[in-house]
Design a protein around this nucleic acid. Structure first.
Lengths: 215, 215
DNA sequence: TTTCGGTTGGACCAAATGGTCTAACCGACT
DNA sequence: AGTCGGTTAGACCATTTGGTCCAACCGAAA
């Protein structure tokens, strides 16, 4: 009943598992050395399969790379999709920051690969960015403008707000080494994790300058 | 009288110029493809010299890479050095943001190379980060704490404030493609440049939430 | 038991790559 | 003119790399 493919059902499952193992290894190496810098030998090695076998599942290096990127992209844009006009701006932004810092902690490699691709000029994602991401950002900008119009948010350019949130939160994944070198802490440390979220929320929502009582 | 080296003086100048041309080409390619991803052939080509000649000036790929990185590092940490206790926090932070966004505009490649190196785990810079950068950040954190103690700044963890400033400003260099895909603008556009600075300053200093008059 | 399609890996290949060797070049000083 | 040290490049090399080919394997259906 279960078999959909002509061969045994667990055959397909095992195959998919293997593919995922390869994708995982690829993510690990691509996120460290980039598309050109990572070799198929190394990826196959880390995945525990032969290079030929890797090329059986993914017909070329580029196809493998794209497959990995594609898998990331969805997860990556999820938090911003969650923003909606029904929430208060405080709740929405607070929540967004938390989710994004969680992503930086749990999917740091994915964040780095995404960053690498951007640095390189996003040769493989540019189109998608221009179409989907742009529309998504436009949509959420409208929400932010609504908040501003209703007086529940101080006036700010929605795009720059979004960039600031992206930049700040991803920084903890992409520059993890730097942060560890300076703070001696990682997001894996629960206390540092909470402090991080807390401080970003405080700065973005409340600002740094005290309301002057003078003048 | 002028000759310091045994050979003619302009000989050394021409030599240094060539070295710089090579470093420039190297920056351009390393910042795009990383240490492994960029080839000496391509670098020599872009610099307009033969590969052998490149290897005459820089005895190995790694040495060249380090030379480029070294040259960046100083420029990169300059803005944070400029922060001092005499300024008002508002002036210091405003100025820092402006300088940093200027760097993102004028030295985007350097920013990206630095980012790449961090992503990779900073194998060549880790030591320096742990020593010099850490000390520098510690010093400036003291300044920020002073501001907080004197009541001219709301309480915030200095480290996280610094990370937020770094992340936000560098984002405009490292993710330039993404920003262009969404906003259709670049920092090269003077209006966009000023809007960027203005918005970051406003969010960081003033915060987003209006002071509630209720309750 | 045979066969068949999906699967696996060792041998192999052409191109690219980091780096060496050697010969020639060139301007300055004798 | 000759030579000397800094400079330049073409030929060459060993290794790595992305990718192909072919032979073998393996579990299930006939």
């Amino acid at each position: 009943m279960t078999p959909i493919t002509p061969t045994a059902p667990d055959r397909a499952a095992a195959s998919e598992a293997r593919k995922q193992r390869i994708r995982d290894a690829a993510l690990s190496l691509f996120s460290q050395f980039g598309l050109r810098g990572a070799s198929l030998d190394a990826i196959a090695d880390q995945a525990g399969v032969s290079k030929t076998n890797l090329l059986y599942y993914f017909p070329s290096k580029k196809k493998l790379y794209i497959s990995v990127l594609q898998q990331i992209l969805y997860t990556w844009l999820e938090p911003i999709r969650a923003i909606d006009a029904e929430q208060s701006p405080e709740a929405a932004i607070s929540h967004y920051i938390r989710i994004k810092v969680e992503l930086s902690r749990d999917h740091a490699q994915a964040s780095r690969l995404f960053c690498l691709e951007m640095i390189q000029g996003a040769p493989l994602l540019k189109e998608e960015l221009q179409r989907d991401l742009r529309a998504l950002v436009e949509e959420k900008s409208k929400v932010i403008e609504g908040w501003i119009a209703s007086g529940s948010l101080l006036p700010v350019d929605p795009h720059h707000l979004i960039y600031l949130l992206w930049g700040t939160t991803q920084h903890y994944a992409d520059f993890a080494v730097q942060i560890e070198a300076i703070s001696g802490k990682t997001l894996a440390d629960p206390e540092f994790f909470e402090t991080t979220i807390n401080n970003i929320q405080r700065i973005v929502l409340g600002g740094l300058l005290p309301r002057s009582n003078e003048a």
